[in-house]
Design a protein around this nucleic acid. Structure first.
Lengths: 339, 339
DNA sequence: TGACATTATGACACCGGTGTCAGGAATTTA
DNA sequence: TAAATTCCTGACACCGGTGTCATAATGTCA
């Protein structure tokens, strides 16, 4: 036998037509039990596998989802944000559970990525994953919508289509951080992340934080906030600049764990003790968080559930079913960095 | 325009045949420059994308590689080994650079995974990635070889086919660890990993470690070794049992960083200071390693290069070119856990 | 026994490209 | 001017399945 076996080969050996083989292999009730068994036996002997390309071409679908990972363009090329890696893991698992393959691809935010996967019939739908300048994405979202491409995204909101987004309740997460500080009587708070609305996730976290503080009659001073993207380096530098400007605080909420880890490094360097002098709370609960010194208190986003929801919602969209907007509840994980 | 545009649509608007469109889009020199331009313009206007299924079916290849990730079946379901996640990231990048898509799939070691991807024409080749009981895989490797499936694997050796393996020089890495201890006059050494040959990577690390010690007239006592799989928990328990058995040592080589991190936890709990009482060296240099307390000295495996080599070698195999066995040089990263 | 439903199968068009072959038009050569 | 060559294009088979339709064989009922 040269090359791979086809359904015609099976048909030949089984003494039936190729149509019957195709039906038999897909367990059509239209085929006789005895014939079906014979076909299966021969298929197994020939190590036959359905040609996905032929099958997909005919049925116009692919049983494949595409995951586009957008990296913060300014972040270090060699390291991928561990939060996204965790998401990738859970998305992969969720896909497998649903019988879908997963195509993974890293993208830069600026690239001309829209639709390529779905238009070329490589995937039935797309999952978009990334932090960053989501504002720039809206035109691309519109293109996707126009072309009726099925997609869901993590974090970013799509105008008028809340159902396409799965994200953590960032606002609620920010409130949790504030509650925690208040419970520990740390009311001189700083925030590192992005207090502008350029990065909507960070912005929501800050809003929730600020609002909950206000609800407890605590005001956060604008000067005690600094911008940072989600890297350790960026958190380190932002914190250093606060310290250099002689800004005082006894509690620090970082918009992500990586920022928090960088912040702790900067604090240590300045001989500021964590948590005695400054309590630190991060966001994400990446794997590293429990290993740093001191172990990091953080707002957990459950990546397992998040990945499942992204996949489930996307499959619903593909099947034409209704999808609800999905907000995942954050949970505060208390460790030593804040007590 | 209902549905997606096909090459026939373009042909219609351009007033040429579908054949010409196909040729034009693939920049065949057989097509007139003017015609080519017209076709491109219309394709762009219609947002045309080549149907991958049709194209793959005809050309009998897929421009896709499959990555099968084997997880240690005994490890915690919810957390993926960060070393593999790093590899996944670099493999993804390498694929993108070569113009290939990447299908990612998690597998349990026991499953009937062989060949499914390549036989069904979903991928042109397969990358196998995992620690673990590679011995069990040999029959499956044989099946793959028989079917002429193109594959490469990380770590595991395939009988008589060294060219199919990309791996770190584990033996050399073990020697580096030994050299380091000797340079710091820590000669009472323990090893945690797997000193049996069940796990060939760990075994090689141990051999290199042992041999280099011997070359310096230091003998490692068998009682000072303990088995562990590559998880923090396993490293923790293995170390606890050493301590419980009252085994003394002033240097500890762990076969992976996760094991080392667990070991440090156990040592701390027993009030054994790292590095003063016991110097610890791990293996892998995962991202967490530099954040733990104390920061972990470790033998780095360069995942960026490893991913590139896996992809490059696999593509060579697919193209029918010769491939050399690939051993990557490990590098010792010195941090506070060992000095 | 004829009308009709049920079951199992084969023939065939089709999905959307790619590659081969034949041939017309334009250009060069004898 | 006829022959040869080059350039460009269209017709068509093909990749390997899936789905529709026609039909033969068998069973059911009046």
């Amino acid at each position: 036998m040269k090359g791979k076996a086809t359904s015609f080969d099976i048909a030949h050996y089984a003494g039936v037509s190729q149509s019957t083989v195709s039906r038999a292999l897909r367990n059509s009730h239209l085929v006789n039990e005895e014939t079906r068994k014979r076909v299966f036996d021969i298929a197994k002997k020939l190590n036959y596998k359905v040609d996905k390309n032929a099958s997909n071409l005919r049925t116009q679908q692919s049983s494949t989802l595409a995951l586009l990972l957008f990296e913060d363009p300014t972040s270090d090329e060699s390291q991928i944000n561990p939060f996204f890696l965790a998401m990738l893991g859970s998305i992969t698992r969720a896909c497998a559970k649903e019988g879908y393959d997963l195509l993974v691809s890293f993208q830069s935010a600026s690239a001309d990525w829209q639709a390529d996967y779905e238009d070329s019939h490589r995937a039935d739908g797309i999952i978009l994953l990334g932090y960053g300048d989501y504002i720039d994405y809206q035109p691309k979202f519109n293109t996707l919508l126009e072309q009726n491409t099925k997609f869901v995204c993590w974090g970013a909101t799509v105008d008028n289509r809340p159902d396409l987004t799965v994200c953590c309740d960032n606002y609620g997460g920010g409130k949790l951080a504030a509650e925690h500080f208040i419970a520990h009587s740390r009311t001189d708070c700083a925030f590192i992340g992005d207090a502008s609305d350029h990065s909507p996730e960070f912005f929501s976290r800050f809003q929730g934080f600020k609002d909950e503080l206000l609800a407890n009659n605590v005001k956060i001073n604008e000067r005690k906030t600094a911008n940072a993207i989600s890297t350790e380096e960026s958190g380190y530098h932002a914190t250093r600049s606060l310290i250099a400007n002689n800004i005082k605080f006894n509690a620090l909420f970082a918009a992500s764990d990586l920022i928090a880890i960088g912040a702790i490094r900067a604090l240590k360097e300045a001989n500021i003790n964590v948590p005695k002098d400054v309590a630190v709370v991060g966001f994400d609960n990446i794997a590293i968080a429990s290993y740093v010194n001191p172990p990091l208190t953080t707002i957990e986003q459950n990546t397992t559930i998040a990945g499942q929801m992204l996949v489930e919602n996307l499959l619903k969209l593909i099947r034409g079913e209704d999808v609800q907007s999905t907000l995942l509840p954050p949970v505060l994980i208390s460790r030593k960095s804040s007590s």
